[in-house]
């Protein structure tokens, strides 16, 4: 599986996700600086977590206008599996690849803890190694994870099975319908606030994130 991890100024989970991908797929991802204008040949594109551009204006707003994003959007629209974690999810929402917006957490606190998540859709390239309705433990670490979309969009997401992950017990950020992660209509773009790359190795305290990278490796190698 050839993968490309986009690096923005103030991305800070780019190396974590690269380590997880390399460990599980056996292939080192290409790290792509945001000023590049074309992606290398890649089976998977990753927008990592962090605080790109210091969250200036709105989280993800500046990163989405980076030169590389034109090609990211084009490739994602053409079907390349694209994973946005945390800040990556915020960027995908700003780009329009995923609907809605990640707003400031409803309680205004930065939340940093491990949360139980329910896997709601196991029929995507990202989630097929999980069990249907399985609860997994994955850390969140964000200030702007409050997923917001209009009722019509939310109904459509639910109806089309596009809610991939939901907070299983308490909701850390006030997101509508406890949404933690969604996919686009074709199912090849996933955005999620929790960090699967932080629980992809037992040495990190958990392995519940590993099946996501295993599923991608199986499908894309």
């Amino acid at each position: 599986m050839r993968s490309a991890v986009i690096v923005f100024p103030a991305s800070n989970c780019d190396r974590d996700v690269a380590v997880a991908i390399e460990k599980i797929s056996g292939v080192k991802p290409r790290m792509v600086w945001h000023k590049e204008t074309a992606l290398p040949d890649a089976d998977l594109i990753v927008l990592p977590g962090g605080f790109s551009y210091g969250d200036y204006l709105r989280c993800g707003a500046m990163a989405n206008r980076s030169p590389i994003m034109k090609d990211v959007v084009a490739k994602a629209k053409a079907g390349t599996p694209t994973l946005g974690i945390c800040n990556g999810f915020q960027i995908l929402a700003e780009s329009g690849l995923l609907p809605g917006v990640l707003m400031r957490n409803a309680n205004l606190h930065f939340v940093c803890r491990t949360m139980p998540l329910r896997v709601e859709n196991t029929d995507t390239v990202f989630t097929r190694k999980y069990g249907d309705g399985e609860t997994i433990e994955v850390p969140v670490a964000h200030h702007d994870g409050n997923y917001h979309a209009d009722a019509e969009t939310l109904d459509r997401l639910e109806g089309e099975g596009r809610v991939a992950f939901r907070y299983a017990n308490d909701n850390p950020n006030g997101s509508q319908r406890d949404i933690a992660g969604i996919v686009n209509q074709s199912g090849n773009v996933l955005g999620l606030m929790p960090h699967p790359e932080r629980v992809a190795d037992a040495a990190l305290g958990g392995t519940d994130g590993a099946p996501l990278f295993e599923a991608l490796t199986e499908a894309l190698s």
């Binding site: 709105r58 206008r65 700003e94 809605g100 917006v101 917001h148």
Partner: peptide, 8 residues
């Protein structure tokens, strides 16, 4: 294009 996110 940039200054506002017209979704919200």
């Amino acid at each position: 294009k940039l200054l506002a996110n017209t979704v919200i």
